[in-house]
Write a protein that binds this DNA or RNA. Sequence first.
DNA 1: ATGAGTGGAGAGTAGAACTATCCGTCCAGG
DNA 2: CCTGGACGGATAGTTCTACTCTCCACTCAT
Lengths: 216, 216
Amino acid sequence: MRIGDLSRRTGVSVASIKYYLREGLLPPGELTSPNQARYGEEHVRRLRLIRALVDVGGLSIAGTRDVLAAVDADDVALHHVLGATQKALLGTPVVADDDEAARAAKLLDDLVERRGWHVTETNPGRPAAIEILATSERLGTEVLTRLLDTYAEALEPLATAEVGAVVARGERSDVVESAVLGTVLGAGLFSALRTMAHESASSRLDAGPAAGPEEG
Amino acid sequence: MRIGDLSRRTGVSVASIKYYLREGLLPPGELTSPNQARYGEEHVRRLRLIRALVDVGGLSIAGTRDVLAAVDADDVALHHVLGATQKALLGTPVVADDDEAARAAKLLDDLVERRGWHVTETNPGRPAAIEILATSERLGTEVLTRLLDTYAEALEPLATAEVGAVVARGERSDVVESAVLGTVLGAGLFSALRTMAHESASSRLDAGPAAGPEEG
DNA sequence: ATGAGTGGAGAGTAGAACTATCCGTCCAGG
DNA sequence: CCTGGACGGATAGTTCTACTCTCCACTCAT
């Protein structure tokens, strides 16, 4: 398969494919002569994976490269790949060094202990969660802190099911790839379903006292 | 309060504040003379809200403007504000017109019916969910479709709690503002906690048969 | 042999989110 | 009352990202 076929198979322009090659997202094809290369099914698959991460997950090209590098490095533990994915998904927020951040950190660590979660120091979710809780406090919204336990409760069966579904897959490369996909697509899907569930829940307590005029 | 004070109070540069004014994210201050304006606490609050939506939620400036316009329009129903928020968060994906999309749509509609959810045609979550499910199928990962019910089950108490927490707040403007904040910050917080729960869950079935060498 | 396609490299582009400069005005401190 | 730093408003410039275009020396199917 040559670059034109690859383009036709995936709907990605030749120019973009070349760009992904330059940026190291896509491994080079096998050279059959100094300026001819052949691509295979793994390139089709990788290209679709790239588009999924970029389009659905909203990852940057640089973030995608990092995630794919972790996917390809077969000496990296699964949860490190997930860490890289999460980092690309959510960024690495700088945790402010103020009262709100300190209180948020305590709130979170208490939760983790109360729930008996096993979370290491390097988990990228921790600073992200702390920053969000601190931001929420700075804005004077106590809503989030009240929901923390509800979130944790909802997450326990969910995370178990997700990890279980992914691990039940056989070869490491498959496991890692569906772990990344599951993280990114799962987050998007969950978020989309959340909107639907919100509408459903709010329609249930419809004509609420403070919801303003409802139309439609 | 003048623009310099506003800048100092919020940590946002004067130039950026002017930019937000130009872009219509921040209402103009009260003019005390043709070229002097005064700003109040509502500007501080609004500026912090903008930064939260942009930094934590990753909303674009244009998307933030749309959300804030919905927040300010007091004749708009709560779920419409949430719809605008979700649209800004997740984008408005174009649903492809192929087999996978059709199957995904059926899958989703079945779920909604099975669960007895009340979701209108215009809910932006629906096309987003369909596109993600279709993408997942195109990549040959059946993991997501198997998790659909788990997601829905986790979401029901969660969405009820979120909507309940937000609606219990009194004035409409407060309700709407915390609804937006809850949607955006809640999504981020949930996602961060999810990473932590994943690590915890995967460490529970540690040394799994296909997880590759674990270090650390 | 020939013309469409190719690999590789560099330059160019469009949009987003600021950032800098300018100008006339204002106003607080001396 | 004078004056220098801040201000409001407008326009232009910058930086970054994710492409997209253009070249050029090949190569390969027809």
